[in-house]
Amino acid sequence: MDTTVKTGTEENVWGGGSDKKPLGASYGKMMMWFFIVSDALTFSGFIASYSFARFKFADSWPIADEVFTHIPLFHGNYPMIYVAFMTFVLIMSSVTMVLAVDAGHKMKKNSVIWYMFFTVIGGAIFVGSQAWEWATFIQGDYGAIETKGGRILQFVKADTGERAALKDFATPLDEERIDHTNSKGVWFFGETTLPSFSVNEVVTGFKANPNILVRTEDIVQEGERKGHKTLLNRSESLERLAGSKYVVEGANLIHNEYGNRLFADFFFFITGFHGFHVLTGVLINIIIFFNVILGTYERRGHYEMVEKVGLYWHFVDLVWVFVFTFFYLV
């Protein structure tokens, strides 16, 4: 290729003076790979630090199957099903993306348009599912007590072994809890939503209801209940409840009713960062989608742009495969 620039839309220029492009890849594709490799290292950093926290608390880490058990519009306990669906949606939208790239190689404009459209729809379903997953996680389902040491105590019905929600046993007491307002405090910014029950109400309800037991974060290492969380008896439960400090409902960056708060922190951080990638991927796909409709790549003579966003889109899928394994399976 000669060193003169031909047209404004010529994308495939390698001005290095030889007919051969380095590694047989165009400049744009090479830069996309540079970005993907560095982004892969960022995600690896996140997942490795998640593993660090998990190894550190190896025998008290929350069990994912007990945390992510919901499906939209259905009641009941269905671990894994919804995430499996999300994974499938993302892989499917990867497939339509490859089909778009393939149609682009053959210069079939209409096929590219349709495949890009399905890719965008798949991505939107995935982002929506992730938002729903976040909302469910933030809302929480059973509620728990946080101790002075920051540990989580959950409640179980002794006869059935099922989890007990706070509202099942907490005794409403006519306690005055006066809202803090700006006029009463010197250093006052605002007040967060109060939990439905106070610590006192939960503990009183626990004492009144002999069918409730406390479940700690520790995972049983030996014997019949190996792999499950430790169940205390009544007297041990009361002893642990003496150290109660907060009532926790749902999860945020500071409190987490499912167990170790680092679990919630990493969940928000890693799936959030991934969801942000999916969101930008969808936006970029939409831009490319309209460019295809407008005929930009038809005039340019090749659909390499579709291939490049395709690489990014597959990378997002690739990251999700790892997030799925390390957050939901292992």
Partner: peptide
């Protein structure tokens, strides 16, 4: 990275 972090985490455990 994984080797270093996991070795350290095992020690902290």
């Amino acid at each position: 990275l994984v080797f270093i972090l996991l070795a350290e985490a095992g020690y902290i455990y």
